[in-house]
Amino acid sequence: MTEKIALITGANKGIGYETARRLAELGMTVLVGARDEQRGRNAEATLRDGGADARFVQLDVTDAESIARAAEWIGREFGRLDVLVNNAGTATVSRRRATASQTSLDDMRAVFEVNVFGLVAVTNAMLPLLRRAEAARIVNVSSEVGSIGSQTEQGNPLFAMPASAQYPSSKSAVNMLTAMYAKELKDTAIKVNAANPGFTDTDFNDHGGIRSVEEGAEPSVYLATLHADGPSGALWGHLWRSDREGGYGVLPW
């Protein structure tokens, strides 16, 4: 088989871009999924300047027609898909952060549209292509804030952190979807896992994170390149402890 084909949604910047760059370094053809054409093409050009085999794909995870066009193009150009990284996401559309009791329902609906419904729409559209691969990998970029166990464990740094409801609950839904897709595909060579990048310094959090973008991409890259004996149906990534370290491993749901 020729080099692997990887689609990364939201790949024009941040963790998505770094994931695309790292997978390209490993010899994959990376499909730079981006909603905005100019930003996507700029990312494609920068990746190519660095030696990557990168192709821009216009892909808005909230637009069914956009998703269908992307799947049709990938099928026509490559005939299969080896890796899908569902990276596109948002913490808030209104840019208003509030406690659970003050959460905007409109904002919650908008966040779920991207983080949850968009993930399902893209995954379902790409599954026929993933089934054609020898051993495909699906990586759903989640977050430790979606781990109910981490949020409720006294002593965990997340326990004392206030958070609005829309983003954490959307990532809890991503974790459950990961488990459901893994169950459905358990008798195939496709592995489905959720990645926890950790609190990464990106535009996503106004650059308030404590981990570099390079570090934030490591869980996605690891899960995208899992060996046949690797896990499926796990939330895996950075383990945040009180000393802000902890290495990598499986997080509680």
Score class of each variant (00 low, 15 high):
S94W: 00
D49H: 09
V114S: 08
A121R: 14
G75M: 08
S94P: 00
G50M: 13
L26I: 02
N140T: 14
Q102V: 05
L119R: 11
G75R: 07
D63K: 04
T123F: 01
E77Y: 01
S104G: 13
R41F: 01
E113G: 14
D60N: 12
E18S: 06
G33C: 05
R39G: 12
A11E: 08
A24V: 01
V93Q: 11
T62I: 11
V111P: 14
P128G: 11
S94A: 09
S66L: 06
A70D: 03
A88W: 03
T9G: 09
V61I: 10
T123C: 08
L84F: 03
A121Q: 14
R97T: 12
D63F: 04
D60A: 11
G27A: 08
F112E: 08
T92I: 00
R132M: 05
T103R: 03
L84G: 04
I8T: 09
A24Q: 00
R97E: 11
E77H: 12
T90Y: 00
S104H: 10
T29P: 02
T103M: 13
D53F: 07
G40F: 01
A88P: 00
A64M: 06
D63E: 13
R48S: 10
D53H: 14
G89E: 05
A11N: 04
I67F: 10
S94I: 00
G79M: 03
L84E: 06
Q102P: 00
A54W: 12
R76D: 15
K13V: 09
A68H: 15
L59N: 07
W73F: 07
L31M: 03
L84S: 01
A54T: 09
A52E: 05
D49S: 14
L7S: 04
R97S: 12
I74R: 02
R76A: 15
V120F: 12
G33M: 10
L84Q: 04
D53I: 11
A24D: 02
D107N: 12
A110V: 10
R35L: 10
R35G: 10
A43F: 02
V83C: 03
L105D: 07
D107V: 13
V116D: 04
L81Y: 08
I5F: 02
L59I: 09
E44F: 11
M28C: 15
G75E: 06
W73I: 14
T123N: 08
E65W: 00
I5P: 02
A133N: 07
F78D: 13
R131W: 10
V122E: 07
E65P: 04
R96S: 11
L59V: 08
L84M: 03
I74N: 02
G118A: 11
A110M: 13
T92L: 00
G118T: 10
A34K: 08
S94C: 01
I8P: 09
V93D: 12
G51W: 02
T19M: 01
A100W: 08
E18C: 01
L81D: 10
A71G: 12
G33D: 06
T92V: 05
V139I: 06
V61T: 02
G27K: 02
G16F: 07
E134M: 11
N115T: 07
F112L: 12
G75S: 06
A125Y: 06
A133E: 01
R55L: 12
L81T: 07
V32L: 04
L81M: 05
T62Q: 14
S104I: 13
E113S: 15
P128W: 06
V122N: 08
A136Q: 03
A100E: 06
A6C: 05
A6Q: 05
D49R: 15
K13W: 00
